[in-house]
Design a protein around this nucleic acid. Structure first.
Length: 892
RNA sequence: GGGCGAUUAGCUCAGUUGGUUAGAGCGCCACGUUGACAUCGUGGAGGUCACUAGUUCGAGUCUAGUAUCGCCCACCA
């Protein structure tokens, strides 16, 4: 029997004073560290590793809230729980922020050189990594810091090399000259996903190319005239009668005079434009394919920095923009320009820096996706991997089914170096070693490593097992793979989630998790994406300092539904802080009650529910509500309905426990029935202690602080048992009767307010209890207290009063409450009120009556639904009679 | 060009197997310092659940279409 309280509970709830200390104590006690417990299936969440490129933002706060709730919930169930944190080097994004910093000092990475630049990046990363990790802690993240990994650490780096080598050996990684997306600013290739498309209103130019050896022309259209310098053919559809005679002949490219074969290709849509297409294999993905089929030259006319190269002839050295203007002008002068029209089309921009991306031919490393995608499609289809919300399954499948090969090489310095070495002897060696000393072919040591690095998402894709020790067969890997839930933003479904799935299957033989939970984007009050440039960022740490991270977490969780974007407002966080205050004060009330007498505790110290025999209707009601809540929460959690679960607890604690139960105990606690007091104390403590445990995953700090002051079991609520629902304890009759009383109290309060009764004043009442005599008998003190009636004449009658002195008559179900408010309300007003109420009851009777006379309804609807209507009808009829009688008594 | 989502009170949003009186927070109005709580309490006002048609005994919830807004995907020059 232990009742441990750590000093007096402070009068006011101040999140800032309790949150930090509790986090430290949890950490020091090792609660976050996952233990391998053979035989027990663990719950595993791998945290989306934040980019160490800046500050913590609301997106981080949101995932911490969701994942921490899941982790704490499972931990309290006694499940070995691993929530593995990490940080990401953020490849191109990481390099970009550091380059931007350097630019402020007038430096470029080229000036610094690769090594010095990387030193700079590491410095930056170390600084921000510390910062962002401490920010995660302030949010209460119960993640296992002992297993923290950074993508660039030796372990994950070796995993990257190993994965690369295995895919290469299997023939799934290849190097080739392909058309890729090139960012002239970042000077690197990008994957399709890293290009954002933006609709712009531009122009479409129709050009005409002379047919060689005739005076005919063929008209072609383009949205990028400067690329005509790289044309190597003109294509038409094979069945197009208009051009059939030209196939096999040549056109002359204006300005440059190059001879362009006219080829027939199915890819050409004869109904679009002129039905003839200029083919520029080096600068258009579609044309690249045509070029492949017809063996056309791919003439690259651009330099890597986006200017025109020597192949552009007279335009060499100009920017693409200038070249465009000049080419069009020249074509016009020479009579090759037919027309210019307005045209909307999509331009690709570098996701990172916004520069317009140029499609270019380049030698890059690729992963062949088809073989990897197939099993990844399968696991989604057969339900091995489940999506929450489900609609994202379709999005995922669509992408996976239309996947293109993945360009994984980047011409950057910051990232995992491609583990490929070139020997002077011509040998190309792929290795999982960090450094290759000797060429396995010639034994020579004149080796050069490929200068490129890998797409940052390559290492991210391995994250679910590289963090557990792979490629080594470690205990962690064995025990914690596959994980359970992948929780992240829907915006990186393809970037990350999809890649984890196919890499997981490829390297580990099974999908890395069974559930993908996707959250939405946190937006500002106007619904805009938060961004530094817009200046509308709500900083989580600022909010936390003002209202506490419990309030912020609770807000983020309850503000919306899974997968939906949400608008965050500070006001809402404030309201939830007030919820914290409410519980704080409720606990103070309970603790004071407990001061006046001991309560029964289980052997471990947990408060137990009072004996059923001793319970009043109030006790039975709140206990029933608690059981209902506990069981509902269980189901909501199982379906990842965390927001709804949070809202339910909120409502229970505030609207039921505080507003009604606690209020109703005051009359008992102020009385002199010691036995009743003891039962009340018992219920107060039992319900609060259990509720705190239910609330703990949502508001970990507040609940810990309060729980410590309550009679409890164990050293922390974090490792306390999760309440087990027991629906057999729900007493439906007690619930119905107590709620009848609530309705009665509300009716009286309403009447008092409308009659202008002074707030504190007690008024007389006479009650005809109808079928609720028992309820009135047992709840009379509570009823009187809450409604402030009964001081005068609170009496029971066998029947309705015949000549009531009352002015106001309240009919609740078949009970009547007479309030002799003579002098406070006039007869006319009362008559009007009654008439209005009668109308409402009549409507109800009409509605239910009609429903019940419908045989289709009575035959087909479930019995309980029909019964409910019957009861409703008969009670409405009784009420109608009572109301009419009363109206009659008032006279005309 | 495809696909998806949203549309519920003045504002921000809940409402997962269709059940007949649609909820919360904030805001608004009135009253209130009763020993947990003014970061609060009590009472109240406020909604044809975007629109149309349909399925059904019954639709905020299911189906089809329309409108507005938003997002994702896409090699029509």
């Amino acid at each position: 029997m232990t009742t441990s309280t750590s000093g007096e509970l402070a009068k006011n709830y101040d999140p800032t004073t309790i949150e930090g200390p509790w986090y430290d104590r949890w950490y020091d006690n090792g609660y976050f560290t996952a233990k391998v417990e053979p035989g027990q299936k663990p719950f595993v969440v791998i945290m989306p590793p934040p980019n160490v490129t800046g500050e913590l933002h609301m997106g981080h706060a949101l995932f911490v809230a969701v994942e921490d709730i899941l982790a704490r919930w499972h931990r309290m169930h006694g499940t070995p729980t691993l929530w593995l944190p990490g940080a990401d080097h953020a490849g191109i994004a990481g390099q970009w922020v550091v380059e931007r910093e350097l630019a402020k000092k007038g430096l470029t990475r080229q000036e610094l050189g690769r090594e010095a630049f990387l030193d700079n990046v590491w410095e930056w990363m170390d600084r921000y990594r510390k910062r962002i990790l401490s920010q995660l802690r302030t949010l209460g993240a119960s993640s296992d810091w002992s297993r923290f990994h950074f993508t660039m650490d030796p372990g994950p780096s070796r995993a990257v090399r190993t994965a690369f080598k295995r895919l290469y050996d299997k023939g799934l990684i290849y190097r080739g000259e392909r058309l890729i997306n090139w960012c002239p600013r970042c000077m690197t290739a990008l994957s399709d996903l890293e290009v954002d498309h933006e609709e712009v209103v531009g122009s479409i130019w129709t050009l005409r190319y002379p047919i060689t050896g005739s005076d005919e022309y063929i008209e072609v259209a383009t949205t990028r005239p400067e690329t005509m310098l790289g044309d190597s053919a003109v294509a038409v559809h094979p069945d197009d009668e208009r051009y059939r005679h030209l196939v096999g002949r040549f056109a002359t490219l204006p300005i440059l005079g190059r001879q362009l074969p006219i080829v027939a290709d199915d890819a050409v849509d004869p109904t679009f434009g002129t039905g003839a297409v200029k083919v520029t294999p080096a600068h258009d993905p579609n044309d690249f394919d045509i070029g492949q089929r017809h063996n056309l030259a791919a003439i690259n006319v651009m330099n890597l920095d986006g200017t025109m190269n020597d192949a552009a002839g007279p335009f060499a050295g100009q920017t693409t923009q200038d070249a465009r203007t000049n080419v069009v002008a020249r074509l016009g002068e020479e009579g090759f320009l037919v027309e210019v029209k307005e045209h909307t089309h999509a331009v690709g921009r570098c996701q990172r820096c916004g520069t317009i991306v140029e499609p270019m031919i380049s030698k890059q490393w690729f992963i062949e996706m088809q073989p990897l995608a197939e099993p990844a499609i399968e696991v989604a289809k057969d339900g091995t991997v489940r999506f929450v919300p489900e609609r994202f399954k379709g999005t995922y499948l669509h992408w996976m089914e239309n996947i293109h090969d993945w360009c994984i090489s980047r011409q950057l310095w910051w990232g995992h170096r491609i583990p490929v070495w070139y020997c002077d002897c011509g040998e190309v060696v792929v290795t999982d070693e960090e450094k290759l000393e000797r060429c396995p072919h010639c034994g020579g040591s004149n080796l050069t490593q490929d200068p490129d690095v890998l797409d940052t998402w390559f290492s991210s894709g391995l994250w679910t097992f590289s963090t557990l020790g792979w490629p080594d067969d470690t205990e962690d890997l064995h025990y914690f793979y596959p994980g359970s839930v992948m929780e992240t933003g829907y915006d990186i479904l393809f970037f990350w989630v999809a890649r984890m799935i196919f890499f997981g299957i490829e390297f580990m033989g099974e999908a890395p998790f069974h559930t993908v939970y996707l959250h939405g984007t946190v937006r500002d009050e106007l619904g805009q994406r938060m961004s530094k440039t817009k200046g509308n960022v709500i900083d989580p740490t600022v909010i936390t300092q003002e209202f506490g991270s419990d309030a912020l977490r609770f807000t983020l969780i309850t503000a919306g539904a899974p997968g939906a974007d949400m608008k965050l407002s500070e006001q809402r966080v404030e309201s939830n802080r007030n919820f914290g205050t409410k519980i704080w004060n409720a606990t103070r009330f309970v603790l004071r009650a407990l001061d006046s007498g001991s309560i029964a505790q289980a052997e471990d110290g947990t408060p137990v529910a009072p004996d059923a025999d001793a319970m009043t209707l109030s006790d039975l009601w709140i206990l029933s509500k608690l059981e209902r809540l506990t069981s509902d929460i269980e189901e909501l959690f199982a379906n990842y309905q965390l927001g709804e679960a949070g809202r339910r607890i909120y409502e229970f604690l505030w609207s039921e426990y505080c507003d009604w139960y606690i209020e109703s105990t005051k009359v008992v606690l102020n009385g002199d029935d010691e036995a009743a007091k003891a039962t009340t104390r018992q219920t107060l403590a039992y319900v609060l202690e259990r509720s705190l445990r239910l609330l703990h995953p949502f508001m970990p700090f507040l609940t810990e602080e309060l729980w410590q002051h309550m009679p409890h079991a164990g050293e922390s609520i974090m490792i306390a048992d999760w309440p087990v629902p027991d629906e057999s304890r729900i007493d439906e009759r007690a619930v119905a009767e107590y709620e009848f009383m609530i309705e009665a109290v509300r009716a009286v309060r309403n009447a008092r307010a409308e009659s202008g009764v002074e707030a504190g004043a007690w008024i007389s009442a006479m009650v005809y209890p109808g079928s609720h005599a028992e309820t009135f008998a047992s709840l009379e003190p509570v009823f009187s207290f809450l409604a402030r009636v009964g001081k005068g004449r609170f009496e029971y009658r066998e029947a309705q009063l015949e000549a009531p002195q009352a002015v106001v008559t309240l009919v609740i179900d078949d009970a009547i409450i007479y309030l002799p408010l003579a002098g406070m309300v006039d007869i006319d007003a009362e008559r009007e009120r009654l008439t209005k109420e009668i109308e409402q009851v009549e409507e109800e009777i009409a509605r239910t009556g009609q429903l019940l006379s419908n045989e289709n309804f009575t035959n087909r609807a479930p019995a309980d639904v029909v019964n409910r209507q019957r009861e409703r009808l008969s009670s409405a009829q009784e009420r109608l009679a009572l109301l009419q009688a009363r109206l009659g008594e008032l006279g005309a």
